[in-house]
Design a binder for these strands. Structure first.
Lengths: 235, 235
DNA sequence: ATGAAAGTTGAACCGACTTTCAACTTAGTT
DNA sequence: AACTAAGTTGAAAGTCGGTTCAACTTTCAT
């Protein structure tokens, strides 16, 4: 299940030697990792392992019980560490949640990205991307739920996630249009609008057919793609 | 702002005389209102007014601060009633939230429904419905937020809202198809898939262009509708 | 005008949770 | 072996907000 889910640490840390340099320099210089982990990064292998246990447990706890039902005790006892250990790595429950959201945003992108390269025209690649997204959603329902709930717990993270996702889709539409694969619609606004429409469609399809139900991702993606390509109108 | 937002009471109560009958019979007979208000329905004009004040305040409080940040004190002080008064009308914070969600689901439907009748083919009417929805979302951002948050606070309400909404869209697609207004796609699954895709598109467009930004609803709806009708594919 | 039902009040209760911290253990270095 | 930094522990402090309730006020039918 949560195999490939722990890039927080991996994104936040530099390989060994650099980390020590950062430590000595007092405040972390790397802005991304500073924001993500502050001065609470683990400094030994043991610490790293503990942090990872907490993160895995947190995904489960938040995913199953939601942010406010989730408790630190719940997380630490799942992780089989003492309550106080949590505060070695995070300043608060919110901070942990934010870290997870940012990480998962990356997870989703990375999981879908491969489907977007390779053969076929732009729309065909979108079909594959949707199928990949549905598979991901089915396998990581907790992730789905956490991103959804970030709308209320970490609005900036939520907004950032969807704005960058929409921007990526809009850019792909622009490329496809430039290659003559789309019918007109060159206005920037149109591309943005359609990007948000497509993204919303994907999210809700994920909710309905991957998180709640479990339909064949390819079948759903194919139906949807036919609609996206040809529209619903007669003739 | 919250003009037409208080049907909880209105749906829950019968006009005067009947209410007294219900009162005398002890337990409320009307199933809908019983579920919504239990035995805590107001029995005087004064009570009705107080309940209404609490509901209005609750929409503001939940809309601005979200479920867990919102507090009963926050609600009652906005409503300018004492803390304890809240418990005359609701058993808990959750119960109030659920009541609001169920009510708002109806609100959204009622606000969009008029756009769905009248001239034009099925897709044209969907265009008007989307525009109406965007206008509603812009005017009632709190409502938007409350329905969104119900995914975590009142999952049944959330699910019911979107499932019935999707079912309505699918039914309209079925009708349009029967009238020969759509290109093939008769399978029930296809209609359901497309209904969820359209609904998701609408929701995200509302979020981006009505709640966060404020674009011209008609422009957004027109762009979207062109896409829905003709698709994105070349030729 | 009177009595009973309905509604109002807010201080106090209560439980549940986050967060702190000083004592303790582990691991690595000299 | 001794020293030190890093990490761990869990009891206890502290906070916060939902919920209760007994006293009080208002409404309304008779």
């Amino acid at each position: 299940m949560g195999d490939r889910i722990l890039t927080i640490t991996e994104a936040a840390r530099d390989p060994g030697t650099k980390r020590n340099a950062r430590l000595r320099s007092g405040k972390s210089a790397s802005p991304a990792s500073a924001a993500a982990r502050g001065d609470k990064a683990p400094r030994t292998a043991r610490g790293e392992k503990t942090l990872r246990k907490i993160l895995t447990a947190a995904i489960e706890e938040f995913g199953e019980r939601g942010f406010s039902e989730a408790s630190i005790v719940g997380i630490t006892s799942r992780a089989k560490v003492a309550l106080g250990t949590f505060y070695t790595y995070f300043d608060s429950k919110e901070e942990l949640f934010q870290a997870l959201v940012r990480d998962m945003s990356v997870q989703v992108r990375d999981h879908v990205a491969p489907a977007l390269s390779g053969t076929g025209d732009g729309l065909e690649r979108e079909r594959r991307a949707l199928a990949a997204f549905l598979r991901f959603a089915a396998e990581h329902k907790q992730v789905y739920r956490i991103i959804d709930e970030s709308e209320f717990v970490d609005p900036e993270g939520f907004r950032a996630h969807y704005e960058t996702t929409a921007a990526r889709i809009a850019a792909r539409l622009g490329d496809a249009a430039a290659r003559g694969e789309l019918r007109e619609d060159e206005s920037a606004l149109a591309h943005e609008v359609i990007a948000w429409a497509l993204m919303g469609a994907n999210v809700f399809l994920g909710l309905r057919f991957a998180v709640w139900g479990s339909s064949d991702p390819d079948e759903i993606a194919t139906i949807t793609n036919r609609f996206i390509r040809h529209g619903l109108g007669a003739r």
